[in-house]
């Protein structure tokens, strides 16, 4: 299958007073047209920075230090700022974690959606307004005329997220980066928002990168999943395989940490915390938390290897057991 987005060895660092923080360390993954790719990991694992790096919007003191981001055949990291602006919001768009603060408090929500049409489609004010109302209807907002004239603080959280999605899909992008789109919404509203995202993604053919720390969400909507730990990518698999046969010790721990109500097993928390990314040692960053740690883990960074079709893992222990073929 053709890859819509191909990220290769993407690295992002933050220069701080204490030293260099390697927030994203040589991450590689692909997104296929029309699919929903989950990116999971604990807080601070570099998921959000990863998404911002794709749009080249990592703000100082952070900077992209290397890698490639190929999107529809061109490397975004080599484009001019001007060309990049034509990509942002038009071909790749983003949905934020907290819709209420991601909407401008002093502009009406209608105006904010209409900006997209003016910015990327050269639409007149009137035309942009008409298309805005269409968009609001598509994301299931009743009384679009009235809602378009309101401000973010006058709308509910779920409604704000629908507005954000309307903004993100206004210009029919090929790729949608959704950064924890359901955090802060109550469960039933979150389910509606996910359903809406999946439905609109399917209808417009847009691929979605869904960043989340909620494996329940992943199981429900994603086609494939990448697992990140401390800025490194540890495993990529289709969603069934990931839950049925996780290979990386971290993924296994994550899956075991899901509380179950159908079986009488205790939930197992993962020991330790995400290690400091401040000048991290070479090797696997999960080494200090890993039950199957080997000597080589602390010296050498494991490569991402193919374990099975649609299943890649970066782990020395798994490699040594011979479960993976060299790519």
């Amino acid at each position: 299958m053709t890859e819509l987005l191909e990220v290769r060895d993407l690295s992002v660092q933050f220069d701080t007073d204490e030293g260099v923080v390697e927030a994203v360390d040589a991450v590689s993954f692909g997104v296929r047209a029309g699919e929903i790719l989950g990116v999971v990991g604990e807080s601070g694992s570099g998921k959000s920075v990863n998404a911002l790096a794709i749009l080249r919007l990592v703000r100082p003191p952070g900077r992209i230090v290397g890698g490639q981001v190929r999107f529809e055949g061109e490397d975004l990291l080599t484009l001019s700022e001007e060309e990049m602006r034509a990509v942002r919001g038009a071909r790749i768009s983003m949905v934020f974690q907290s819709p209420r603060t991601a909407l401008n408090p002093v502009l009406t929500v209608g105006r904010q959606i209409a900006r997209l049409f003016e910015l990327h489609r050269g639409a007149s004010r009137r035309d942009a307004r008409r298309r805005t109302l269409e968009m609001l209807t598509r994301v299931g907002i009743a009384e679009p005329e009235r809602r378009a004239r309101q401000y973010a603080h006058q709308l509910s959280g779920g409604m704000c997220q629908r507005v954000m999605i309307a903004m993100a899909l206004a210009t029919s992008p090929r790729l949608l980066l959704a950064d924890e789109p359901t955090t802060g919404l109550d469960v039933s509203i979150a389910a509606q928002v996910l359903e809406l995202l999946r439905d609109l993604g399917r209808r417009t053919g847009a691929a979605i990168v869904l960043i989340t720390h909620d494996l329940g969400v992943v199981a429900e909507v994603c086609d494939r999943v990448t697992v990140m730990h401390a800025g490194q990518l540890v495993e990529v698999a289709d969603v069934r395989t990931l839950f049925a046969r996780p290979l990386h010790p971290y993924t296994q721990a994550l899956v075991r940490a899901i509380p179950r109500i159908d079986q009488d097993v205790a939930m197992e928390p993962i020991p330790g915390a995400v290690p400091s990314l401040l000048m991290p040692p070479p090797g696997c960053r999960y080494a200090d938390r890993c039950p199957r740690v080997l000597d080589v883990c602390r010296r050498e960074r494991p490569a991402l290897l193919v374990a099975a079709p649609e299943h890649e893992v970066a782990c020395h222990a798994v490699e040594r057991e011979g479960a993976v073929a060299i790519r």
């Binding site: 749009l55 991601a102 910015l119």
Partner: peptide, 14 residues
């Protein structure tokens, strides 16, 4: 530094 500024950047504003 607000999120709505971030959002304005992600949609390609100058």
């Amino acid at each position: 530094e607000t999120e709505y500024a971030e959002a304005a950047r992600t949609v390609g504003n100058r």
